[in-house]
């Protein structure tokens, strides 16, 4: 599933980028790879990678967050430390980008470094979200993100879910829509993401989808 050093997650806000990014990074660590994750969200101060910084660091992931992330000011400043990630060629890097084209804009700053190092740019799609529920809307979202980031989307991620109410037929329906988009614009589907309810559930999904990222819930609400 992973073959590029730089792995960028983009998509509509609320599509599940952060949950997928932190899980993706956690998987890299489990495979014994030296891993860093960057919280590049310049849009939303809530529910971001910075929330799980300590947990990720404990697992051995290097975490880079904007200086004021998770505080009471929302200054969209990018830390200089990000530049160092392009120098250390032994490092696998995950970028958790802000939502929509506005969030993707921050990537443009690193365009030449990203291209030079080789990258995958994933676009995460939950077809149950209001602005990505049709083929046309998804394609528009992808092209807006590409334009703002000055990078090419290389893989799609089907992250169709309804939290605890997710049923397998919804995921399949979401997958069909993402496949349609894939065929229409020629960008392959990287994987389907899924948060299993238990181990049996996880097994069923593994059988149904050849490329799947099983998620552990990392970003939690105050009462979870």
């Amino acid at each position: 599933m992973i073959d590029k050093r730089i792995n960028i997650f983009t998509g509509h806000f609320g599509s599940g980028k952060t949950e997928i990014s932190v899980n993706f990074a956690a998987n890299l660590i489990k495979e014994g790879l030296k891993t860093a994750i960057v919280d590049l969200d310049i849009v939303n101060p809530y529910f971001r990678t910075a929330v799980v910084q300590k947990k990720m660091e404990k697992a051995g992931v290097r975490v880079i967050v904007p200086r004021y992330a998770n505080t009471n000011v929302d200054i969209p400043a990018l830390p200089a430390e990000i530049n160092s990630l392009f120098e250390d060629k032994s490092l696998w890097v995950v970028f958790d980008t802000g939502g929509d084209d506005i969030g993707a804009k921050a990537l443009g700053r690193y365009k030449s470094e990203i291209v030079e190092n080789g990258y995958d740019m994933y676009v995460v799609v939950n077809t149950n979200r209001p602005f990505t529920d049709t083929k046309e809307k998804i394609i528009k979202m992808i092209s807006d993100i590409e334009e703002a980031s000055r990078l090419r989307a290389t893989k799609l991620v089907n992250n169709t879910h309804l939290l605890g109410e997710t049923k397998i037929d919804q995921i399949i329906k979401g997958n069909e829509l993402v496949m349609e988009v894939s065929e229409s614009i020629g960008i392959p589907v990287g994987f389907t993401a899924y948060m299993p309810k238990n181990s049996d559930d996880a097994e069923i999904m593994r059988q149904d989808f050849d490329k799947i990222l099983l998620l552990d819930k990392m970003i939690k609400l105050p009462w979870e």
Binding site: G14, N126, N128, R129, P130, D133, H161, L162, L163
Partner: peptide, 9 residues
């Protein structure tokens, strides 16, 4: 119809 939404949306 069911949607996944933020409170604001």
């Amino acid at each position: 119809e069911k949607m996944l939404m933020k409170g604001n949306e």
